[in-house]
Each structure stands twice: as structure tokens, then as C-alpha cells.
């Protein structure tokens, strides 16, 4: 057992957990942040993606010890109160989700993609960059549309800030 301390969605948290605990289990089982999902056991599906220090990573493949001291953002932490993050809004408006299971990971990965590419995103790039996120429902068509739409919205909201 170890004590890990990290910041999750802006709040300092501390937990006593077994060293074999994965970040995703800490979030789901100890912090009740069940928006981060588990869809595979081979680090492939991306349902578990969160941001660690601003980078989108698979929380099922990070030991809590590795995340000790870092700043973690989950799907629950990206909207400002009632105001959705532009990526969340774009997924809703473009029907970028069906069962919703892959959605939190998709959104967290997609925000990272837009952060990296800014305005230089096109359909092929989005499709390639989504390689680590599997969706069984949407055929990706509307996910790609959502990400491209959000890229525009995020530019506008960044410009406004």
C-alpha cells in the first residue's frame, strides 16, 4: 500500500491504495469518477483516456505511482459549470455518440488532437489521430465531424479569451 497524492480536476486528492492499482481504478473505484471507462485489457480502445499534465493518455496503462504528483483531468472536469466544453457541445450537436461508452475517451483524445494541430486539422488527420480510440456504434462518421466542428469552435473560443 502507498499513499498517492495528485490533483484531479483541479482538486487535491490523496488515497491509500495498493501499488498495483491503475490510474483508471483510482478514478473509478476510489474517487467515484466513473465517466472514465474501461473497454479493453490490452491498452487499445481508448475508453479510459484522461489528461495527465495536459497530455491525453490511457489511464488503464498508468500505475497510480506513476501519476503521483501529477495533474489529472477527466471527462468530469472539462466543462465550466453548466457550460459544456466546445468538444462536448460538438459531439452532442453532430450526434457524435450513440451508446456513449467510448465517448469520454474520444472527447479527451479529441481535445488533445485539436490542441496539437490547432487549425491544421483535416478529415484524414483526424481519422489517423483517432487510431487509439475504438467506437463500435458510430462508424466514426459523426465523430470525425464533431472533432472538425469543435476545432473551429475551440479556435473561436481561444481567440475570445
Amino acid at each position: 500500500m502507498s499513499t498517492v497524492k495528485l490533483t484531479v480536476n483541479g482538486k487535491a486528492v490523496s488515497a491509500d491504495v495498493e501499488d498495483r492499482t491503475l490510474l483508471v481504478n483510482l478514478l473509478r473505484d476510489h474517487l467515484n469518477l466513473t465517466g472514465t471507462h474501461v473497454g479493453c485489457d490490452t491498452s487499445q480502445c481508448g475508453a479510459c483516456v484522461v489528461h495527465i499534465d495536459g497530455r491525453a493518455v490511457k489511464s488503464c496503462t498508468v500505475l497510480v505511482g506513476q501519476a503521483d504528483g501529477s495533474n489529472v483531468t477527466t471527462i468530469e472536469g472539462i466543462s465550466k459549470g453548466d457550460e459544456l466544453h466546445p468538444m462536448q457541445a460538438a459531439f452532442r450537436d453532430n450526434h457524435g455518440l450513440q451508446c456513449g461508452y467510448c465517448t469520454p475517451g474520444m472527447i479527451m483524445s479529441a481535445i488533445d488532437i485539436v490542441n496539437r494541430y490547432g487549425g491544421k486539422l483535416d478529415e484524414d488527420t483526424v481519422r489517423h489521430e483517432l487510431e487509439g480510440n475504438i467506437c463500435r456504434c458510430t462508424g466514426y462518421h459523426n465523430i470525425v465531424k464533431s472533432v472538425l466542428d469543435a476545432a473551429g469552435r475551440m479556435r473561436v473560443s481561444q481567440a475570445a479569451e
Binding site: 466513473t34 465517466g35 468530469e76 452532442r92 455518440l97 456513449g100 469520454p104
Partner: peptide, 15 residues
Amino acid sequence: VRKEDRRFITGRGRY
């Protein structure tokens, strides 16, 4: 647009 989406996109779906 779907009524159910808000809970899913904010991580509040309940599986």
C-alpha cells in the same frame, strides 16, 4: 439533438 447526450458527454452516464 439527443436528450440523453448531456449525461454521456459529461461523464455522468450510469453503466
